[in-house]
Every structure is written in structure tokens, then in C-alpha cells.
Design a protein around this nucleic acid. Sequence first.
DNA 1: ACACGCAATGTAAACGTTTACATTACATAT
DNA 2: ATATGTAATGTAAACGTTTACATTGCGTGT
Lengths: 343, 343
Amino acid sequence: MTVGIKEVARKANVSIATVSRVLNGSASVTQETKERVMAIVGELNYMPHAIGRALVTHKTNLLGVILPDVHSEFFSELIRGIDHAARERSYHIIVSSTHSNKKEIESMLGVMQGGHVDGLIVMSPHISADGVLKRLSPRSKLVFVNSYTNGGKFVSVAIDNFNGAYRMVDHLIGHGYEKIAIIKGEESNFDAQERFNGYLQALKKHRIRRISELEINGNFTEESGYDGMMKILKLKTKPTALFCANDSMALGALRAMHEKDIIVPGEIALAGFDDIPSAQYVLPSLTSVHVPIYELGTAAVESLLDEGKGDAPGGRKKILNTSVVKRESCGCPPGTRERVKGI
Amino acid sequence: MTVGIKEVARKANVSIATVSRVLNGSASVTQETKERVMAIVGELNYMPHAIGRALVTHKTNLLGVILPDVHSEFFSELIRGIDHAARERSYHIIVSSTHSNKKEIESMLGVMQGGHVDGLIVMSPHISADGVLKRLSPRSKLVFVNSYTNGGKFVSVAIDNFNGAYRMVDHLIGHGYEKIAIIKGEESNFDAQERFNGYLQALKKHRIRRISELEINGNFTEESGYDGMMKILKLKTKPTALFCANDSMALGALRAMHEKDIIVPGEIALAGFDDIPSAQYVLPSLTSVHVPIYELGTAAVESLLDEGKGDAPGGRKKILNTSVVKRESCGCPPGTRERVKGI
DNA sequence: ACACGCAATGTAAACGTTTACATTACATAT
DNA sequence: ATATGTAATGTAAACGTTTACATTGCGTGT
């Protein structure tokens, strides 16, 4: 039997309304009664029942977060960013690490419509936001993270995959490499697609023809990087550099090259994307594109909760800068570990 | 204006009680009415309001998870484990990645007492569970993960830090090393303490005297590993092996040794704890103690939710096995990558 | 034909708050 | 003294469900 507002009211000789007012500071209450009530509250260790409150206020102070299967650093940094920003606004977060399962997403959406959360942060790189879009009551608080949001009907935040890849490949070309292979992510993946586009754009800028046999399919796993590299090593004319659409695949490719005694970057230069922690510990250290994951999380919360601060009412898209981190694997001298900021 | 049970009831020409019964399958309803109601439910896309329901059932199907600042893989794997086990039981999880801040924990505890969550999973390696213990209503559903739980009044799950460290150091001694240094975690940290105890126990078993200058303080960060190693390298008599209480510090130590051109494991062998992903990619690959993080999460949920399955009612403690993963850094031949399972 | 039991459904209270509206008490203006 | 405004507090409805209890209708045994 937990102590409720009624018991507090009785012991303090006031009505429950007054107790409520004291607790919320919502209306004028005598200093004396205020103290009396607070004393009882402390004495009974009373805590307002969040559910009862939520039922009438229609506010749970809970945010839903739906994530696909992302690598652990992305996951934890994103959650930390979201959580921190949420806590600042006195929200808690409900996390659902679905595997991009459409049914899971809709289940969560259900939880939301069910009134359990005040807003939703969704990252679904595999599924078009459109599918989700339809089921939504138009007034739903919702923000997409790194997802397709064609139409622009929804709020979204994303990292600048395109420019990150573009600048990285541009950097590789700056080293003098021309035959630059790429191990891509899955075509259905939003990030992967954008990164590939950045790669193509960089080639285009320097008038380098794309060679389809240098465009290898991968799926963001270490294995697929290893396998992709093995394919590349079987080509008659090997590339002089390899850009992997993420670091896991770059690590896999590196392992393959170690096995085949290929010298990196001497024979083939290497660059990745994500700047995961391992990137700085492998030998040679891995040049990569740094992604502001934590900030992605805070930005999502800001977009969701800080409405009407002069923002346009319709769907907006916020893009966060990425930056090239030069290390050894691209051919930069060992000392060159400074970070090249994005524009 | 969202559609509620009343509207469904009206359109289906039944009372709200019947609609409720159909939705919950709680009592006998004619097949015919059942279908009629479900048709309307589908038509209106009605979803029960979770808050209203929770108010009367006293069940939110939400679990609170309070975590300190742990490394990203631990965080994400633990959450995945918890989330997966929770979803199987149709629970969602509220995550709070506090920084072991006592106030934060109590705030979360408040949310719980406030009725928002049905149970709580707490990991607080720095704070004695006792502090938290007092504020708790005795019937609170609560499980501790890798925390001090002296008294044993509460349910807890933990990994076998002691035996993991013990077996690892035993393995190092098996290689012939006798002067084995350790870089410890903070004394206030539960895991760190247990690991240190395992180290001591292994020395004791082999009648090796502890040498206090070989017991270096660290704090689980890469930097502290680096700094610790630098201290070790200044000793007159260097150790032949180093055991770090976690992999991050081992990576830091490795970096220091690379800088000073110390050959690993030739001059100094190295072993870590946690088996983080980087461990297998560094050169030499890092021998480490594997920790079943995902399982730790699922075990926590099981302990919390699967009560009365013949378990003792009082505080139980479940301990999950750890296992030594032999790689190159301890002196095992490069091919030896099989995993040594715990007892 | 009657009572009885049971299946199907309805009625209304309860869950723990907030808050619009009503009431009271009192100080001040007239 | 009376009216009036205002501050302090109380009353009760509302939020959206579930569920104990009441009611209805109908088949069955007598």
C-alpha cells in the first residue's frame, strides 16, 4: 500500500487539491500550509504517482527511441546524446533496439499512440520513412535520424554522409591515387547510398572514370570487408587505394591485406568511415571520417522538443558535419593525426 | 482527438466493458460480437491507451535500467541483452545512462516508485547498494548488476570477475612469467576490486610474492593504461608480464610499449579483461577475458521477471562465467585463438 | 409451466492525479 | 454597515481503462 495524495491531504488537514497545488506550485498557497504539506510529504516520503498524473495531463515525460542494429559505439554514443539532452529537459527515454524490423517499429509506434511516450526518435536506414508515415496521426511528435525522409514532411536530423565520403575520396586523390576501389554498404541502406554518392562525386570532380569492377558490394560487417578485399586482390589490375563505406569493413579489408602481405598504405592505401575507436589502434592506424554521433542524438532531441523557436513549421532537415581524420593508412605521415574539420 | 474505447463501443453497439473484454480476451464473448468489435477496432485503428490501462492494472510493462559510464560495447551489448529478454516478455525498457551519480539513481528510483516502471535493473559499481537500499519499499522489483550487494538482501547478477582474473593470471604463470605486474581499476569499483583479488589469488596459489611496485593504479581509461605502463617502464626491474584490469588500459599500455619499442610479448607479455572488439584487431592481438555481456542483460531480466520458479525468495546472486581468450599478446602462438571456457 | 444455472452483456466504481469552478474568509472601499 | 475584490481553499469532474457486481435472456431438468 503506497502512500497517495489523499493520505497526505488528510494528515495535513487540507484537500487533495491543495496538496497538488503545493507540489506543482500552480496556484497561490499560504506559506504556512505549504510548509505543513511539505512536512507531511517528507514524513511519508510521498511521491506523486506518475501514471495518475499522466492520465490527466497527457504528458508522460517519456521519449521513445527506435534504433536498428548499429555498431556498438554508434548505439551507445547516440543513446548517450539523446539521454543527456532528454534529461536536461526532464525527459526519460524508452529504448527499443529493434533490428529494423518493420513490425517492431509499428509496435513501438503503437506504444506511442497508446500515450506512453510524448515523442519518438526513429532511425530506420533500411525502410523508407514513407511506410511508417502513413500510420501516423499528423500531430505525432516524431523525428527521424539518418533515414530516408523523402517528401520532407517530417523533421529529421542526419550526418553529412555525402560530403564526408566526398572529402575523403578527394583526399585520397590528393595523395595521387587514381584507381580507387570502394566497398559499399547495402543498397537499401541510406547511409551506404549517400556515401557511395560522395565517392562518385569526388571521382567526377577529378574526371576519373568509374570502373565498375572496383565497386564492390558489402554489408557493413567485418566479414564483408574481408571478402570484398579478397575479391579485389583477384583483379588483374589492382587499385592503389580503397575506400570502405564503414570502418568495420575497412578493418576486414585490412585483415585480408595483412594475410596476403600487402603493405598498407605502400601498395594499397585504405580509408574508412565512422572513426570507430579501433581505427586509432590498428596498425597502420586507419584514416576515417569522423561522425558526430553524440551530437546527432542531442540534435534529435532538440528538434523534437524545442519547437517553435523560429523554426519553420513544416518538415525540416538538420545536417551535421562530418570530418576527415587523417591517420597512417591513407599514406599521410605518421605524425599527421590532426583532424580536418568539415566546412 | 484520438479514438477511445467509448467510440468503439458506441459504433459496435456494445458497452465499453465488452470492448475491453474482447481486447483482453478476459471473459466469454460471443463470436459474433467479438468480430463486430474487432471490425470497428480495425476500422478506427483504435489502440488502447496504455496510461489509462496502467492506472487500473498497476502495470506499465516498462522496466527501468540505470547504468553508469561503461565502455560502449558493454553498454550496447547489455542493453541489447536486456531489451531482447524484455521484449520476449512484452516489456519495454527505460534507459538512464547516469554517471553513477547518486542523485540520478534516486531520481530514477523516484520514477519507479512513481509507478512508471514495473521493475528496475541497476548497475552501480561505485556505490554500495546499501545506500540505495534504504529508500526502497521492500516489495520493489529490483535487480543489481555487477554491484556490491552485501547482505544479499537483493537479487543480483554478476560476471565472474574473480575467476576470470584468476584464470588469466594463472595462464600467464603457465607461460613461465613470474614477475607479473597489474594495472588496476579504481578501488571504489566493484569489478576492479574483484579482478584484483583474482590476480592476488593466482599469485598465492603459485606461491609468488606480491610486489607492491608492480601493482599500479589505473581507472579503466586508455590514458591511465598508458600512464601506468610508463611508470612500469621506469622501474629498475621490469616485469615479464602485465595484466590489465580491462582492455582499454591494456590498449593504452600497448601504445606505450609501441612507443618505447618494447616487443610484446617477447619482452613483456600482456593480457586484458573484457574482450572488447579492438582486442582482436590490435597487433599483437590481445589476450583477454571474455565477458558474456549480452547474457548478463538477459539474466538480469530473467531474475527480475521470472520469479517464483522455484527460486529462493530471499536475495539470490547469479554469477555468469567468464573465459580466457588466448591470443598473441600473452605469448601463445599466433594460431592459438581458441577460447578457453570457464568452469 | 417453473425454477435454475449459465452465458452474454451492461453498469458503475475504482485507479491517482489535475483543474475548472465554487466557496469561504477577510481586507478594503464606499 | 454594506458591497466588492482577492487570496486561499474545497468540491467534483475528468482523464481512459479494467473489473466486480448486477442484469438479462435462454436452454434444461423437473
